[in-house]
Design a protein around this nucleic acid. Sequence first.
DNA 1: TTAGGGTTAG
Length: 497
Amino acid sequence: MIGNVSRLHTINRSSLVCSLKFKSSFHNLTTTTPPSPPPLEEDDAAGLCNLILKLDLQTLSQNLETNSVCWTPDLVNKILKRLWNHGPKALEFFRLLERHPIYTHSTTSFDHAIDIAARLRDYKTVWTLVARMRKRRLGPNPKTFAIITERFVSAGKPDKAVRVFLSMHEHGCQQDLNSFNTFLDVLCKSKRAEMAYNLFKVLKRRFKADTISYNIIANGFCLIKRTPRALEVLREMVESGLEPTLKTYNIILNGYFKAGQIKEAWQFFLEMKRRKCVMDVVTYTTMVHGFGVSGEIQKARQVFDEMLETGILPSVATYTAFIQVLCKKDTVENAIVVFEEMLKKGYTPNSTTYSVLIRGLCHVGKMDKAMEYLDRMKQDECEPNVQIFNVIIRYYCDEGEIEKSLEVFERMGSGECLPNLDTYNILISAMFVRKRSDDLMVAGKLLIEMVDRGFVPRKFTFNRILNGLLLTGNQDFAQEILRAQSKCGRLPRHFRL
DNA sequence: TTAGGGTTAG
C-alpha cells in the first residue's frame, strides 16, 4: 500500500514530463532539454494543459509571454474546458494570457472564465471579469448572464440570481424575451418551477411571453413531477391565445412518465395518434425510455419497432435510451446486441451511449468488459468524460478493488480527464473501508489535492481524516490537513492553527 | 445557450 502513497505523489507530475510534446520555446523550462522533441501541434490542447498543470506560476508566466504558441480563441477555450476541474489553474492561465503582448481574449473565453470563477464561488472575480469584458467592448452578453444566474441558482442563491437578471441592463446588457426565457429555464431546471412561475406572472406582459415561455414553465413542473400544475399552465397558455406545439405535447408525455403515470402517458400517446398529431423522434424516444424505465421492455421494444415502421429514423439518443433500459430492466447482453446493431446501421455512439453501456457492464460485475469499452471509446475518438471514469472507479471501489480504482484515477490525472468533486469523494470514502493507515494517508493526500483544485470537501470528510490521523499519531500531517481546511473556509471561525 | 428525448443511486 505504501506504493500507492508514493504513487499518488507522482500523479499529474512525473509521468507527464515524458509524455509531453514540447515545442522549442518550452525547452528552457526544463533543466535538461529532451534530445529530439517532437513538435507540438498547434492544436495540442492536452499537451499544453499538462504543461500548465505542471508549472508554477512564475515559470508559467514567463512562458506564456515568451513562447511561440499560436494562441487562438479555439485553443484557449479547449484548454479552459480541459482545466474545468482545476478552477484555480484555469483562472491563473486565463489571467496570465491576458498580459500577452499580442493575443487578446475572446468573448467566449471570458464567458468560460466567468463560469469557472462562479463555480469556485469567487464572485469578486466574476464581476471583475464582467467589467473587463465591458471595457473591452466584448460584452457582457445574454449568455454571460445565463452563466452567472445559473451558477447563483445552483449555489442555492436563486434570489440573488433574480436580482442579477433584473440588473443586467446596468452592466450594459439589455433584457429581452430570449434572456427572460433563458432565465426561467435556469430556475426550472434547478427544480424551482414555482419561483419561475411567480416571476413569470409578474413579467409576462413586459416581455410578451410566448409559447416557449409557457413550455419552459410546464416542463419545470413536469421535472418536479407535478403534471397537473403543468397542464394548468398550458390551459392558461391556450386561454391567452397561444397554440401548443409538438414540443408542448412531448413535454407533457415525458412529464407523465417522470411522475410514474404510465397509464396516462399511454393514453396521451394514443390521443396524439387519434388526433393525427405529427410525432417525431423525440416523441418516440420518450416512449421507449419511459416504458423501459418502468420495466415494460416489451412495450418499449414494440414502440421502437413501430417507430421504424412509421419511417421515423431513430437518433443516437433513441438508441442510447433503448440501450440504457435494456441494461437496467433486461440484460446487458441484449443491450450489447442493440449497440452492435446501431453500429451496423452506421450510427456513431457518443459518450452518453458508452456511459450507459459501461455502467450496465459495471453493474453486473463485468469490469473487464467495461474497461474494454472504455478503450474502444478512445479508438472511436470519443473522449471518455469524468462521469464514465467515476462509474468505473465507484464500482471498483464497491468490489474492494481499491488498487484498480486508483489505477484508473491515475490515468485520469495523467491528462486524459481531470477528476471532479465526485471522483475525490468516491475515492476518499473508499479509503476508509480497509482500515489501513496507508489508505488514510492516501485519503489525506487526495483531500489536499482537491482543495488545491478549488473543491470544497464536506466538514465530515475533514473530520474523518483528522480523527484518523490523530489516532495514528500523525500530528504533522493532521496540521497540513487543517491548513487545507482553513484555506477553503471550513474551519470554525475562532479556530487557530 | 430560447423550449422537448438519452449518463446518477438507493
